[in-house]
């Protein structure tokens, strides 16, 4: 498992734990203590941010980095993916902190970082898949040429015999 995947998966697990605890508080406390409900309600966007982007999106991108086909045993544009993961993780942190503080430009900055992170990851995946496709086509062409040469030699040997 590449190091980027390890860090992305662990960051997504941290978001899962924080988001789940926040969700549990949002679900359990208001019915038992209605006056607290109003002050807790402003935490709902933080819960959504942590679980939708921090947990699900981060985990999906980290696992995709690990399991998508490699080109010649390498992951091309790995630095782009690393920058994307860093932007996404800081975007989640920024957006969650901004939502906790009541919204505003911090949330806009956080969500913009998330967009940048996803876009960089998209660039990585595009480069990686097109490199893989090119190398795979070359490998198939070489294999079929080798097979043709082999068939030719077999045919030639048969005539000689």
């Amino acid at each position: 498992m590449p190091r980027l995947t390890v860090w992305t998966v662990r960051a997504s697990l941290v978001c899962l734990v924080l988001g789940a605890l926040l969700g549990a508080a949002l679900l359990a406390v208001p019915p038992l203590d209605p006056p607290v409900a109003a002050s807790l309600a402003r935490l709902a966007p933080v819960h959504v941010e942590l679980l939708l982007v921090g947990w699900l999106v981060q985990l999906a991108l980290g696992v995709a980095y690990w399991i998508l086909p490699r080109a010649g045993g390498r992951r091309p544009a790995a630095r782009v993916a690393g920058s994307g993961a860093a932007a996404l993780a800081s975007g989640v942190g920024c957006a969650a902190a901004g939502a906790l503080a009541g919204g505003g430009w911090v949330v806009v900055a956080g969500r913009s970082l998330e967009v940048v992170g996803a876009a960089l990851f998209g660039v990585h995946v595009t480069v990686r898949l097109s490199t893989w496709k090119r190398l795979d086509a070359r490998r198939r062409r070489e294999a079929s040429e080798l097979a043709e040469v082999g068939r030719g030699q077999e045919g030639g040997g048969g005539t000689d015999a």
Binding site: A20, L21, G23, A24, A25, L27, A28, P31, L32
Partner: peptide, 12 residues
């Protein structure tokens, strides 16, 4: 209300 609290506890 108590069952909702139990549900929150179980899921988290």
């Amino acid at each position: 209300a108590a069952l909702l609290a139990l549900s929150a506890l179980a899921q988290s």
